[in-house]
C-alpha cells in the first residue's frame, strides 16, 4: 500500500509491511503499532524518532521477531519470515543484530568480555574455541577496547566500554543491519561522541546499515539517510532525513525539530511557543477519532477530528500523514 520513498534496485534487507501490534491490557486494547510500513535498503540507514510510548520499541521487537505482529509481515532478504519457527528463523537472525540501550544489562554477567563477544558464534555453532577467541580479540581491536580487558567481566568496565563490547558482540556474526535502540542515550555526552564516531567508522568500513532508534534528532541526522517520525503508534512523517530536517511538513515533526536547543552566534535559539508544544497526549488505549495528533496540533481543522490522515507523498518526496501538511507549513 505505502511504498518507501526509496525505490530499491534489489530486494530490501528488511521490510516491515503493514505492521500492526495490539496488546490487550486491563484498560482496553493498546495499539502500539498501527499499520506501519518501513523498509531498509542496503546502505540507507533508517532513523526512527518519537517520544516514549510512540511504539518505537514495539516496532523493533517486532523486527527482531521477539514479538510477532498482530497483523502484517516481516520480510528479511526478500523472504516473509513473520510466522517462521525459531529454528527456521535462526539464519535470518544473523543478518540483523541488535544493540540495546543499557549495555550493562544486555551483556551476560557471568561471562568475560571475550566470551560475551564471541557468544553469537557459539550460538550459531560457527567456529571452534580457538577461532572464537581470535575473533573476539579481532573485534575488540575493531571497536577499540584494550585487549587487557579480554578476561574482565562486564561490571568491571565503564558504560562507554560496555557499549563497545555490546557493539562488538553484535558485529560478531557479520550482520548486514545493526539495530541500535537508544544506543547512546544512557552515556555521558563526551562518551556519546566517541561511540557515534565509532559507529560512523564502522558504517563506512564494514558497509553496515543502521536502524537507529532515538529521541535525539541530531544523532539521527548524523547517522541516518532516512527518517521515520512516529507518534502514538503511527508513522506521521517519513522521508530522506536531510529533507525532513530542512523542510518538516508534519506539525509534530516541526515541533520536535523546533524543540532542539541549538547554539547560534550569540546565544541559544529560542524555544518554540507554547502553542506548538502544548496540549495533552491522548492515552494510547483511548485514541480519539480522527488524527491522533489533534489534541496538540495548532493547525487542526474540522476534518482532523473526523478522519484519520493517511501517509501521502508530498512534493518534496516525504510521506506525511496530515490533512493540513501543506497549509501548516505555509503558516509557519
Amino acid at each position: 500500500m505505502i511504498q518507501s520513498v526509496f525505490q530499491p534496485d534489489d530486494t530490501p534487507i528488511v521490510k516491515l509491511e503493514n505492521i500492526t501490534k495490539r496488546f490487550r491490557t486491563s484498560r482496553g486494547d493498546l495499539l502500539a503499532c498501527n499499520d506501519i510500513t518501513v523498509q531498509v535498503d542496503k546502505g540507507i540507514s533508517l532513523g526512527v524518532v518519537g517520544e516514549s510510548g510512540s511504539g518505537k520499541s514495539t516496532l523493533i521487537k517486532t523486527l527482531q521477531l521477539l514479538e510477532r505482529p498482530t497483523k502484517g509481515n516481516v520480510w528479511i532478504g526478500g523472504q516473509n519470515v513473520t510466522l517462521y519457527s525459531e529454528k527456521r528463523l535462526k539464519p535470518f537472525r544473523r543478518r540483523i543484530q541488535f544493540v540495546a540501550q543499557d549495555p550493562y544489562s544486555s551483556l551476560f554477567p557471568n561471562m568475560t568480555i571475550a566470551q560475551n563477544i564471541s557468544e553469537p558464534l557459539y550460538v550459531h555453532g560457527i567456529s571452534d574455541k580457538k577461532e572464537r577467541r581470535d575473533k573476539a580479540a579481532e573485534l575488540m581491536e575493531l571497536v577499540g577496547i584494550s585487549l587487557s580487558y579480554f578476561h574482565s567481566f562486564p561490571h568491571e568496565l565503564s558504560g562507554g566500554q560496555q557499549q563497545r563490547v555490546a557493539i562488538a558482540r553484535a558485529l560478531a556474526l557479520s550482520p548486514e543491519v545493526l539495530v541500535l535502540d537508544e544506543a547512546v542515550s544512557s552515556l555521558d555526552v563526551s562518551i556519546q561522541a566517541q561511540i557515534l564516531n565509532l559507529l560512523q567508522r564502522l558504517k563506512k568500513d564494514l558497509g553496515l546499515t543502521y536502524i537507529f532508534i532515538s529521541h535525539n534528532l541530531a544523532v539521527i541526522r548524523l547517522m541516518c539517510e532516512q527518517l521515520a517520525v512516529m507518534y502514538l503508534g503511527r508513522v506521521v512523517e517519513q522521508g530522506n532525513s536531510d529533507e525532513v530536517f530542512r523542510n518538516p511538513l508534519h506539525p509534530y515533526t516541526r515541533s520536535l525539530i523546533a524543540a532542539i536547543p541549538a547554539f547560534t552566534n550569540n546565544g541559544v535559539t529560542p524555544l518554540p511557543s507554547e502553542s506548538l508544544l502544548g496540549g495533552n497526549r491522548p492515552s494510547a488505549t483511548d485514541l480519539p477519532k480522527g488524527c491522533a495528533y489533534q489534541t496538540r496540533c495548532p493547525f487542526a481543522t474540522e476534518i482532523c477530528f473526523r478522519e484519520e490522515p493517511k501517509l501521502e507523498a508530498m512534493g518534496n518526496g516525504s510521506l506525511v500523514a496530515c490533512h493540513n501538511a501543506m497549509s501548516a507549513s505555509d503558516n509557519a
Binding site: 537472525r93 541488535f98 540495546a100 544489562s105 551476560f108 554477567p109 557468544e119 550459531h124 558482540r169
Partner: peptide
C-alpha cells in the same frame, strides 16, 4: 535484557 539479547541472537 541479556536474555532478550540471547533470543535475538537466535539461541534456542
Amino acid at each position: 535484557e541479556y536474555i532478550q539479547a540471547a533470543r535475538s541472537m537466535g539461541a534456542s
